Simulated scan of single mutants.
Amino acid sequence: MNKINVSVRHWCATVLRFVSVASLFFLAGMAFQSNRSSAHSVEAASTHLYELMVYHALPGKASDLESVFKGVSGLQDKHGLRAVGYWIPKSEDPAWQNTFVYLLDHSDRESAEKNWQALHADPLFTPFRQAAIPLIRQKDGEYLVDEVYMSPTSYSASK
Rank of each mutant, 00 (worst) to 15 (best):
M1N: 12
K3C: 10
A62K: 00
P59C: 05
T14K: 11
Y102T: 04
S154M: 14
L49T: 00
A44Q: 14
S111M: 01
Q76D: 03
R109A: 06
I88T: 01
M1E: 10
G29N: 14
S20N: 10
Y155F: 15
C12S: 13
G74K: 02
N2C: 08
S46A: 09
A95Y: 15
F100I: 06
F26H: 07
S41W: 08
Y86C: 07
D64N: 11
I133E: 12
V72H: 01
F25Q: 09
W116R: 06
R109W: 01
L144N: 03
A121S: 12
Y102A: 09
A62F: 01
V72N: 03
E147T: 15
E147N: 15
K70E: 15
E92A: 08
M150F: 05
A44W: 05
D140E: 07
W87D: 12
A31L: 09
E147G: 13
V6H: 10
F26G: 02
F26Y: 13
D77H: 10
L16F: 14
A118L: 03
Q76G: 03
K159G: 15
W11P: 01
N5Y: 05
S38T: 08
Y50K: 04
H120F: 09
A45K: 02
G85K: 00
V148N: 05
S23V: 02
R82N: 13
A62Y: 01
F125N: 06
A112D: 10
V145F: 01
H40Q: 15
H56Q: 11
L49C: 01
S41N: 12
Q97L: 02
K114S: 05
H48G: 06
P89Q: 03
S38C: 05
Y155N: 15
I88V: 04
L104R: 01
L119Q: 00
Y55A: 04
T14D: 10
P59Q: 04
G71I: 05
D140N: 08
S63H: 13
L16M: 13
S156N: 08
S67I: 05
L124S: 13
F125I: 05
